[in-house]
Amino acid sequence: MKITLKVWRQKNGKDSGRFETYQLNHVSEDMSFLEMFDVLNEQLITENKEPVAFDHDCREGICGMCSMYINGRAHGPWEGTTTCQLHMRAFNDGDTIVVEPWRSAAFPVLKDLMVDRSAFDRIMAVGGFVSVNTGNAVDANSTLIPKEDADNAFSAAACIGCGACVATCKNSSAMLFVSAKVSQLALLPQGQVERKDRVRKMVAQMDAEGFGSCTNTGACEAECPKGISIANIARMNREYLGAAILPGN
């Protein structure tokens, strides 16, 4: 396949950035999208140009590090798929593909397609946990958890923290990410003790990081590579309201 790429190039956080156009003449449909970028970079190195910087690591769709905005969609055209799992058979010979970084004030660009998502870590650090020190645990089977609750908690916990929800949302809201963690722990007995405190703190930190508010467009759910449900946002709103009205942890 022949592919034309329009890629966002930005030297660093201070540079204003621009699109550059590249031509690739031998793209196989068996390549993953990132392998196509490997080929582009190999070509750029040969031409003595600087390769495109992009985040990636596991290339199995689970680490959440890859983050390209492809033809106006976070992680590209395939549903439920991260950029690293997107394959070139999704495109046609002669296509032009536009690739940008995640765009959000809370995710500043570091270089080219790499952004800083440390805001997510700071949200987790204020409450995305159960306060149990190592060695304090009781026997694992002493707490019965209905399969349905465990399954729902797992579905929320499957979030990979990639930030596609933020990149997709017109308000740059991080509600899907935050609500996934709030929901996971609210659904489980282990999370009950700190339930109210957790949602208050995580929401406050989310706001402090400069993420926007949710206006229920549902774009985050549609583009989430792991199918995290927008029902989590509804649950977080209930949790938050409850925590605002009722005293205690």
Binding site: G135, N136, A140, N141, A150, F154
Partner: peptide, 22 residues
């Protein structure tokens, strides 16, 4: 065995049977 206890206490959602056991 202690690892499983610790992880469950942290809220790791392991697969469960209908009776609620792991």
């Amino acid at each position: 065995a202690s690892i499983i206890d610790q992880c469950v206490a942290q809220g790791v959602p392991f697969a469960r049977e209908y009776g609620g056991l792991l």
